[in-house]
């Protein structure tokens, strides 16, 4: 998965639904570790800012 940082509000909603703890949040940035990510798409579905897309 990929974060569009221009859209991301760093709200962390994606972290709550990630079943494998692949997402980290700091004060300034959300990041998804694609090594851990299982492509379940939970984060993409729940993101209120539509800031998450699938990697090409």
């Amino acid at each position: 998965m990929k974060i569009i940082h221009e859209f991301c509000d760093i709200c962390g909603t994606c972290v709550a639904v990630c079943p494998v703890d692949a997402i980290t949040v700091t004060e300034f940035k959300v990041e998804i570790d694609n090594e851990i990510c299982t492509n379940c798409l939970n984060c993409l579905k729940v993101c209120p800012a539509k800031a998450i897309v699938e990697c090409e």
Partner: peptide, 9 residues
Amino acid sequence: DGTESRVGR
């Protein structure tokens, strides 16, 4: 640490 909690994990 809120909705985005990771500490529990």
